[in-house]
């Protein structure tokens, strides 16, 4: 089953994401954001980058792209949809995930490795991880501070929608941006729409410094095989 990687003007992790998907045997295609149909695709990725130059707010203009109607339709039909970094910002702006991503508390664009704890392994994106496994993944963002009101945060906790949290590991890492609840990634209630700020697609080969991101893609590959 084919996976669509949406390309907005200003996306820059689209090729990496396609590479990471193809490495695990999935067929991935880049799809320009003006495309009106995603017929024939079994999953959708919104990649990292700076869609529309991050103008207005990160992800705020991309949500109006013609393809987003189709992304919403696939999400509602239960297809796996994943947003990485800017893709996560687009998903929150579009209302497909709750909350918002605000400027990092320290106002710095932060580009470094962080540690994440896997909080859920019963998702199409995380089945190849172990519960509470600690992953080492890169981040590269200026607006990654997860924010939601208290009611929404309580609901996320209660429904187990927090999938990845920033953690300290051997005295390193920790929350890099001021995210509430140390949230690095969340999923919708149904469990098919995932957004995360760190970049798993940049950690799929040892030459890249970490292979901890590969599990996302191998998990998805298995999930799609059972759907097909």
């Amino acid at each position: 089953m084919k996976v669509a990687v949406i390309v907005f003007p200003g996306s820059n992790c689209d090729q990496d994401t396609r590479w990471a998907l193809e490495r695990v045997g999935l067929k991935a295609e880049l799809v320009w954001h003006t495309e009106g149909s995603l017929e024939g695709y079994g999953a959708v990725f919104l990649p990292g980058g700076f869609s529309y130059g991050d103008y207005l707010r990160a992800g705020a203009l991309a949500k109006f792209s013609p393809v987003m109607g189709e992304v919403r339709r696939l999400a509602q039909r239960g297809y796996p949809v994943m947003g990485i970094c800017n893709g996560f910002q687009v998903l929150t702006e579009a209302g497909l995930l709750p909350g918002a991503l605000l400027a990092n508390t320290n106002l710095h664009y932060t580009c470094k490795e962080v540690f994440l704890r896997v909080e859920r392994t019963d998702l199409p994106f995380t089945s190849d991880y172990r519960q509470a496994q600690v992953l080492r993944l890169p981040i590269a963002h200026g607006e990654g501070r997860y924010y939601a009101d208290e009611e929404t945060l309580a609901r996320l906790e209660q429904n187990r929608q927090i999938v990845f949290r920033y953690v300290e590991h051997q005295g390193q890492g920790g929350n890099p941006n001021g995210s509430l609840g140390d949230i690095a990634g969340i999923v919708n209630e149904r469990g098919n729409v995932l957004g995360m700020m760190p970049h798993p697609e940049r950690a799929v080969e040892s030459v890249l410094g970490s292979v901890d991101g590969e599990g996302i893609f191998t998990s998805l590959s298995k999930a799609l095989a059972t759907l097909a």
């Binding site: 207005l56 707010r57 705020a60 109006f64 929150t92 702006e93 709750p98 909350g99 918002a100 605000l102 924010y147 939601a148 009101d149």
Partner: peptide, 8 residues
Amino acid sequence: KALANPVM
């Protein structure tokens, strides 16, 4: 309304 994000 279209341009503002009601979350924040």
